[in-house]
Structures are given as C-alpha cells and as structure tokens.
Simulated assay, not measured.
Amino acid sequence: MRVVTTKAGLGRIEDGAVALLDTAFPHLGAVLEQEGSLRCLASCAVRRRVPLDEATLLAPLERPRAVWGVGLNYVSKAARTGRGLPEQPILYLAASSAVPAPGARVVIPDAVAEPDYEGEIAVVVGSRLYRATESEVWPATAGITAANDMTARDVMRATAIPALAKSYPGFTPLGPSICTPDDLADRDAIRVRTRVNGALHQDDTSAGMIFPVTELLSRLSWFTALEPGDVVLTGTPAGTGQDRACFLADGDEIRVEVDGVLPLVTRIARPAGTPPRDHRLTEPVS
C-alpha cells in the first residue's frame, strides 16, 4: 500500500490516482500516533478519486517527533571517499523543523557555501522500538519513503556537528508518499537513485549498506526509544556533490527515487547578491 497526505485528506495511490479516504486523521503521523501502523487505511472507504498530478501533496507525517540519521553507511561511499568501514553506526539527531513539504523550494542560507544533496531511504517507525532485536524491526516499521538529507559541507567541516550542518529550514525533505513493508519487492535490496538536473549521480541499493536497516534500527533502539512516526535516515551512497566537488546552485533540481514510493523533488534557490558569510561558532566559554 502506498499512502499520501494531501490538502484534501489522506489517500491511497491506486492506478495512477489518489483515492481520498473517509477518515478524520489529518496526516499519516496522526495515524501512527494512534494506531501504531498504517494498516487501518487499507480498509477505509474511498470518498472520491483525483488524478495524481492534480493532488496537492503535503509532508506525509507533517512534522516528525524525531529524525535520526547515520553517516557513512554505504560501502560505495566509503570506497569513494577512501575511508575505512566504521565498526559502529555514526548517528546524529537532526531538527524536525528542517522537514518541508514535498516539492518545496529550499532557500540556501547565506551562511552556507557548500550545500549538498544526499539521496536516502527513510524508514518510518510504526510501533515503539526499544532494545529491539533485528527480527522485531520490520514488523514495527510503518513503511519507507524517500529523503534528501541535505548537508552544508563547509559547516560540517567547521563545526564537526552533523545536526548543525543538516538542520537549516528545508534541509530534510521527506516523502511525498510512504510505502508499507508488505509492498516492497525486496526489503534487503531497496534501490535509491538521485538525479541532479536530470543527470543520474547516485544509484545503489540497501544491499550495499554497512549496517542494514534491521541492524541499524536495532542498534539505535538500545540507546533510545523509537516512537511511532519517528524517522530514521539510513545513509547515502556514493555520488554526492562532495564526491564530485560540485555543490548545489540556484535553480538546481534534485530528484530522489526510492523503490515503491513517489519521487521526491527538491528545488534549490540562492538569493542573488548574498555571498556566504562566516559561519564559525563563537569561541566556547571555558
């Protein structure tokens, strides 16, 4: 089942159209908070159908409670950058306020000189995971979606704090649809591709992950409770702008394609005449 949040209500994607559902839930995050899964939407009556290209799609979860990410989680990315494989996941927590609506224009702040894209598979938690085994992860997963885990590379170098480099407004686009696990052809090899202005730069599957989905969420759940509607970004493969020394510019369009879900499109804007400012933090207080 593929589901969306639209301006007209929740819907299932069926035969190239959105089947708007007879439900009072305002967004998919509210469904997960109350139900712990999206399965109840499979039996909802259909109010009406609208062509997919006529539906106004909103952020599927509205604003997640928590967005977790992981650095260096693809063998291809480690090989491209010449880094060794990590023994433990490199985890961080980003601001949920960075999640915009699908298709939104992201304005690059003047403090950022090297904005980059990162096409990723995002896992949406359905029911609570705490001290979970790997076998408990997929049954507790509501679904997957596409993500563009944008990063200010210069800010990352200057601060060494992923949350600061990734939490600018609009820097974590998610959606626009969620695919439930039972609709995935192969949970162990979910494909992710990223195109910039139509050119393919990233193409890999989750089979290339250093820490697969089940292991990643299991490990994370031993340090924190993952709650319904939380999102875990699972890392990006080789082919980012960092790998090519080519960063995002005004007018660029990034398209992230993940198996089972609608493409996620992000458009970049950088106001003219605003050169990057010094983004360094002030000296810490001793």
Rank of each mutant, 00 (worst) to 15 (best):
T145H: 08
E136V: 14
I190F: 06
T145K: 01
A160F: 13
D154A: 10
A152V: 04
R193I: 14
R128E: 09
P162K: 07
P173Y: 14
I121E: 01
S167A: 11
P173I: 14
D203R: 09
A101T: 05
I161H: 10
L184P: 11
Y130C: 11
A185Q: 10
T205A: 14
D182H: 15
V155G: 00
Y168G: 02
A158W: 07
S135F: 13
P102Q: 00
S177A: 14
A146G: 05
A140P: 00
Y117S: 02
H201T: 14
T159M: 00
T151P: 00
I121H: 00
Y168D: 01
G175A: 10
V106L: 06
L184V: 13
S167L: 13
E114Y: 15
P115C: 03
T133K: 06
A113M: 05
A98R: 03
D149R: 05
S96Y: 03
Q202T: 05
N148C: 10
S97Y: 06
L184G: 11
P162T: 12
P139K: 07
A104Y: 06
P181F: 09
T145A: 05
R193Q: 15
W138M: 01
G175H: 05
V123L: 06
S167C: 12
A147H: 00
A132S: 10
P139A: 13
E134F: 09
I161C: 10
Q202I: 09
